[in-house]
Structures are given as C-alpha cells and as structure tokens.
C-alpha cells in the first residue's frame, strides 16, 4: 500500500485492485452455488475481506455479526454442529488472537467443519501498525490439534486453497495477505495438494523454504543467485504449514544440506520452527537459518519497506543465502550411507 499519487481519489468500497481477497470472494461465491450448506460470516469486514461477494449472491446464507469476533466464531461452531459449512472471514489478527479460544475450543477441539479465511496476515496491513499486524498467528493456530493451516502464495493459490479446503472434513485456517502481493502463478494449471510442498525451482546448493507472500521473493532471489553467481537454489513453496510436508524437508536436507526458511511472521514457532523440528528429528547435520521477524513487534510502515527491514524480501534472502553458503557445519560421518 504505497502512497497514492494526489490525483487519485478512492474510498474503501472502490479498492478493487485487492486481488487475493477478491479472488477468494469470487471462488466462494461459485462454491456457494455448488454447496448449499456453505454459509458466510463476517464481523463488519464483509467489504474489506471480500466475503461480501458471497453475501451479495446469497444474502440468506450470509451473516454479519458486527464488530464481535468472539461471538462470530462461537456461532460458526454452532452452525457447523447444525450441519452447515461456515466460512468465517476477518483480519488474521482478530481470527487468531481476538477470537483465539473460540477457534481453539469451540471449533478445533470439537473438530468442526469451519473454514477460517484470515486476511491481512503478517505485516501486509503496513501503515495500520502493530494492532493490525498478525506476526504470531502461525505459532498460535499451528498448536491447535485437528486444524489444517494453509498460507497461499498469491491470488491463484488462494483460489486453489479455498476449493481444496472443501475436501477436508474439519477446521481449516487459510491465511492470506491484503491483496497487493505480487503474483507467483499465472494459471491454476499446477498441482496443488494440501500438505504437499511445491518445488518452484530445482536446486542442489541449498534450499529456500518459503510460505505465503515470501514465496515470490524466494523465487526472485533464486533467479538472481543463479544469474549472478551460478548458485543453484532450490525453492519450496510450503503452502501448507500443517500438516507439514516433512518428506520434502528431509529430501531437501539430504540433497542440499543447507536450508533457509522465510516467513512473514515472528521467527518463533512459525514455518522455521516447524522445519527445524523435522531437521532435529532427522539427526542430520546441516546449515540452517530462519528469516522472519526477530521476536519483535512490527512498527507501521509500507509493507514493502517492512519486508525489506526484516530481510524477508528478495534482497534479504539473497544476502542470507550467501552467508549460509559460507557457514561451516559438521558433516556426519555416515552421511553417504544414509543417503
């Protein structure tokens, strides 16, 4: 959300460039035709999150609860108990934190079929500042049993995730950005499977594991590293945080021995920690580092500036990769046998 030029006039209702959210609104509307049991819920953010697109099409199946997120998630649990499939949308900060226990106890504990679309994740709501950033939601919701956690890379992948989550009988948390994130995919013609990482670039020197908005930057960084220095960086789009594709992590570990994770989230207990768990359990030595917010609250600022500050953009990844390639680590003796 860069500063707009001064000849530009718009209101919250006309902000029609918000692709990631818009696409999900449209996909949900289409799903609504197919599944009469889908209901939509929002908390005074129907327009901002774009679930209003579904609401306009199916006014009888859409409910606005006003600015009352806890109640909304509780009601969603009740609707699911009644046999419906609620899609609940609000900003990530409010889905994961304001309504936290309602999501955990009412929805996840009872393993109910509720789909949460959490928008404006990470630092994507830049100038709105810390109160509207969600840089701890992976950590929180990843710890909820039964919950599937998906962080699509862009608008097209959001569409994939929204469709695919219908195949999951149980709660799903889909975390997206504000909608200004650059596109990674140009079409839906690729294999999107929940729980299966996607190899965006093959590589043998190291692996960059990214999720959400950082996937774009990881791909850019890999291309720059190859062109400038002949470095072969594998890029994994880890769009599903839970269940994590452990196989892809172990394969990357075995084949490249150097791993770097990138996320728009605190480095504590997000993607990096999930990957670290897999590495630790494997018993294999490697060079590993996590990029993300260094356990700090993010200040207000334009998202691209904040991503740069926290080294989770292309430049930050390129620098970190160079550093990681120079790092020593202990090779285990029987490494080759294991491979």
């Amino acid at each position: 959300m860069s500063k707009t030029d001064s000849t530009f006039s718009w209101t919250v209702y006309e902000a029609d460039k918000l692709t990631q959210r818009e696409i999900y609104g449209i996909v949900l509307k289409d799903l609504g035709a197919q599944y009469p049991e889908i209901v939509g819920l929002s908390a005074d953010l129907a327009k901002s999150t774009k679930i209003g697109t579904f609401g306009d099409a199916y006014p009888d199946r859409f409910f606005n609860f006003g600015i009352a997120e806890q109640n909304m998630f509780g009601v969603a649990a009740g609707l699911a108990q009644a046999g419906l499939i609620p899609f609940v949308s609000t900003f990530s900060a409010f889905a994961s934190m304001r309504a936290c226990e309602f999501v955990r106890t009412d929805i996840c504990y009872q393993n109910l079929n509720v789909k949460v679309i959490a928008t404006h994740g990470g630092i994507s709501f830049g100038s709105a500042g810390t109160t509207h950033h969600a840089t701890e939601d992976y950590a929180i919701v990843r710890a909820f049993p039964h919950l599937t956690v998906i962080v699509p890379a862009d608008a097209i992948e959001t569409a994939q995730a929204v469709k695919k989550c219908m195949e999951i009988e149980g709660p799903v948390y889909i975390r997206i950005g504000r909608g200004f994130e650059p596109a990674v995919y140009t079409s839906e013609e690729y294999d999107f499977e929940v729980g299966k990482a996607i190899e965006m670039r093959p590589g043998t020197d190291l692996t960059i594991i990214a999720t959400g908005a950082t996937v774009y930057h990881a791909v850019q960084a890999a291309d720059i590293l190859k062109a400038e220095s002949g470095i072969s960086a594998r890029v994994l789009n880890m769009h599903t945080l839970k269940p994590l594709d452990e196989e892809a992590v172990v394969k990357a570990l075995t084949e490249t021995r150097r791993l770097i994770t990138v996320e728009d989230h605190n480095v504590i207990n997000g993607l990096g920690s999930a990957v670290a768990d897999v590495i630790a359990a494997s018993g294999k030595g490697c060079a590993f580092t996590k990029l993300g917010l260094p356990d700090t609250f993010s200040p207000h600022g334009y998202p691209e500036d904040l991503m740069h500050r926290f080294h989770i953009d292309t430049d930050g990844i390129v620098d970190k990769v160079r550093e990681l390639l120079n790092r020593e680590f202990e090779e285990d003796e029987d490494w080759e046998d294991e491979v």
Partner: peptide
Amino acid sequence: ETDSMLGMHLDYHKVPGCETSTGS
C-alpha cells in the same frame, strides 16, 4: 509513512500525549 511518528493507529511508544496504543 515508514519510520514516521504517526501511523494509522497512534503508537504509545512514539506519539507524545498518546496514553495507550489502540486500534483493535
């Protein structure tokens, strides 16, 4: 703006006279 004193929601750490950070 990035690095400015004032964001959309006032920050208690940055703005003199702001008693507490609100926005949620």
